[in-house]
């Protein structure tokens, strides 16, 4: 299991491939992944930059908790979760989740669980820079 809060660049597909290369082959019949990236628009306005704030200590603890819960609830072979903080630019990846399991139902459900728990409860806050200045994002759209 790899869980990380990162201030710095994220290459989701390369990092998923690198992580998978370290797993024992032939075990996982299913891999489900989710990548969340920054849009250049929100609520009808253009967004030129974003800052992602977090609660050092609690955010990491919360992500580890939902990863542990997912691993208890579904029979998973491996789990990869990285979420960025700090300065983000449009098209940058913000979050990557990968879940490996023997069967697709468990992989899909665990991946969905992780992103929905993260989006609804993990202590992160987006402050977008729009043409008229900075705006705190009020809430996430329903999954």
């Amino acid at each position: 299991m790899h869980v990380e809060v990162r201030e710095g660049p994220l290459s989701p597909w390369q990092e998923l491939a690198d992580f998978e290369a370290g797993l024992p082959g032939g075990k996982s019949g299913a891999t489900a992944s989710f990548v969340g990236s920054m849009r250049d628009f929100n609520e009808g306005e253009s967004v030129v930059a974003m800052f992602l704030e977090h609660y050092p200590g609690m955010t990491d603890k919360f992500l580890r908790r939902i990863a542990t819960e997912a691993a208890e609830r579904w029979p998973l072979d491996a789990l990869f979760l990285v979420h960025r903080v700090g300065e983000i630019r449009p098209a940058d990846a913000i979050v990557v989740i990968g879940v490996w399991s023997a069967h697709r139902r468990d992989a899909f459900e665990a991946c969905r669980y992780l992103i929905e728990e993260l989006k609804s409860r993990a202590p992160f806050w987006k402050r977008e820079t729009r043409p008229d200045g900075p705006h705190w994002v009020a809430g996430n759209t329903p999954g």
Binding site: F124, W125, W136, G139
Partner: peptide, 10 residues
């Protein structure tokens, strides 16, 4: 004790 608005990560 921490207070914060609704979260918006992901």
């Amino acid at each position: 004790v921490a207070f914060f608005p609704p979260v918006t990560g992901g």
